[in-house]
Structure formats: C-alpha cells, structure tokens
C-alpha cells in the first residue's frame, strides 16, 4: 500500500507543479473579482475542471444568463466525453468508480492513460490515488491563491508551462510506443486546422469530431497496422 501511494505521488508530481500554480492563479482571479477563498474552495471541490473555472470567474463578475452558462460549460468540457471512452471497462471494475468518473480532468486523463504500474503496485489503487492527489493539488492551489493574493515575492510568470510540458512528454512517450502514428498525426493536423478556422476558444469540439470521424473511416487500415506489428514492450517507469 505504501509503495502504491509513493508510486502514485511520484507520477503526480508534474501535475502538482502545474495545478498548484494554475489553481493559485484561479484563486487569485476569483479573489480579485470579489469572492473569498471559500468560493475558490467550493468551485475546486464540486466543479474541478481547470479551463471552465477560469471562465467561471467571468461568469461571476458579469451577468451571463444561466442557459448560456450551461451551454458554454457543455461545449468547453465536451472533450471530457472522449476521455471516458478509454476507461469505461477499467473504471467499472473499481470500487471508487463514481469518483474516478467525476475526477477525470485533462491532466489526470493524461497520467492515467500513460500509466504503467511496476511490480508490487496495485494498479487500481494507484489510479485512484493519482486522481485524488491531483484534485487535492488543485484545491490547495486555488485556496492558497485566494488567501495569499499577490504576496508572492517572485515573478512566477510562465510557470503554467509545466502543464504544456507534461502533455508534450506524454505525447513523445505515446509516439514511441505506438504501433501506428496515424492517430497522433490525424489529431495534430485536425487540431491545427480547426484552431486556424474556429479560433482558440472553439476549436476543441470540431477538432475532436473530425478526428473521431477520420479514425473511424480509417479503422480497417489502422487495425491492420496494429495487428501486423508486435506490441512494443513498455519500458519500466
């Protein structure tokens, strides 16, 4: 058990850096909008989704109507519906099923789908602790941001790049282990094209729909490639 928790903590360190600082930024913004750290705490406990919580700060400072808020939330977070697809079977076999579904953020998803547990580590428990630690980092960061405000003595500008770097390292690992690079290439091209057409705030959903469409259209070809090449052995973390 100790080994599992230590493993989960080690795996979650990149998210620790990213979440504490992003959460801090969220708490700070919310406080500037006139909401104390209790509101940051509440949002991070029950919403727990980075990008929409930043949009939430806008909602709370303006007069956005509830239906518009609902639609925007559904659209911005629609990508989550695709994350669950990789875990339908796995989560179902876990005691912590409801929490795993609730807490599947971008970053937790990326950690879990690249997770390879060494001997002596309980995979399901490791997955649960990674999810739990990630949310605790996010909650901790956002409360700190609300409490400490602008007291930080250093210039932390750019620290949020840790999140981008996390995605990049996982992308590199997946690229190395993939038996076909088609999905990665399709995802990359589709998102760049959609970004240029739809702009930064609206491109995720069309891009994911096009990606899924293309992957389904090319299914025979991709499955053929997967079967032809033996699985590359995953290296120990």
């Amino acid at each position: 058990m100790k080994q599992t928790i230590r493993f989960a903590f080690y795996k979650s360190i990149p998210v620790l850096l990213g979440y504490v600082f992003l959460g801090f930024a969220f708490g700070l913004l919310l406080q500037e909008a006139g909401y104390s750290f209790w509101w940051a705490l509440l949002s991070s406990v029950i919403v727990y989704a980075g990008s929409i919580q930043f949009v939430l700060v806008d909602f709370l400072s303006g007069g956005t109507s509830l239906p518009v808020i609902a639609v925007m939330t559904l659209l911005i977070n629609s990508r989550h519906a695709f994350y669950g697809l990789s875990f339908v079977e796995k989560f179902r076999r876990m005691k912590t099923y409801p929490y795993m579904v609730f807490s599947l953020t971008d970053e937790t998803y990326s950690l879990l789908c690249s997770l390879k547990t060494p001997e002596g580590v309980d995979e399901k428990k490791a997955m649960f602790f990674i999810s739990l630690f990630d949310q605790l980092y996010w909650i901790g960061g956002s409360v700190l941001g609300g409490v400490l405000g602008q007291l930080l003595p250093f210039d932390m500008t750019g620290i949020d790049f840790a999140m981008t770097a996390l995605f990049v390292t996982i992308f590199v690992d997946q690229w190395r282990e993939a038996r076909t690079h088609l999905p990665a290439v399709i995802g990359l091209i589709s998102s760049v094209v959609c970004l240029l057409i739809f702009g930064g705030n609206n491109f995720i959903l069309p891009s994911l729909i096009i990606t899924v469409g293309l992957l389904m259209a090319l299914r025979n070809r991709i499955e053929g490639r997967i079967e032809k090449r033996p699985e590359r052995k995953a290296e120990e973390a």
Binding site: R79, F82, Y83, L85, S86, F87, V88, E89, D106, Y109, S110, C113, S114, M163, T164, F167, V168, I170, F171, Q174, W175, A178, H181, P183, A184, V185, I186, G187, L188, S190, S191, V192, L195, G200, F203, I204, S207, L208, T211, V212, L215, M216, R219, I222, E223
Partner: peptide
C-alpha cells in the same frame, strides 16, 4: 467500435491538448 476508439484516441487527444496549450 468504442473499444477501438478508446485504444486509438489517446495519442490524438494528447496532440489536441498540446495544440490547445499553445493556442
């Protein structure tokens, strides 16, 4: 089909997220 997507989507989504971060 869902099993297939679950297996094949992660690299595509990770590429999308990297682009999202760089937007």
């Amino acid at each position: 089909a869902v099993e297939y997507l679950g297996q094949i989507l992660p690299p595509a989504i990770m590429a999308t997220l990297v682009v999202y971060c760089l937007k």
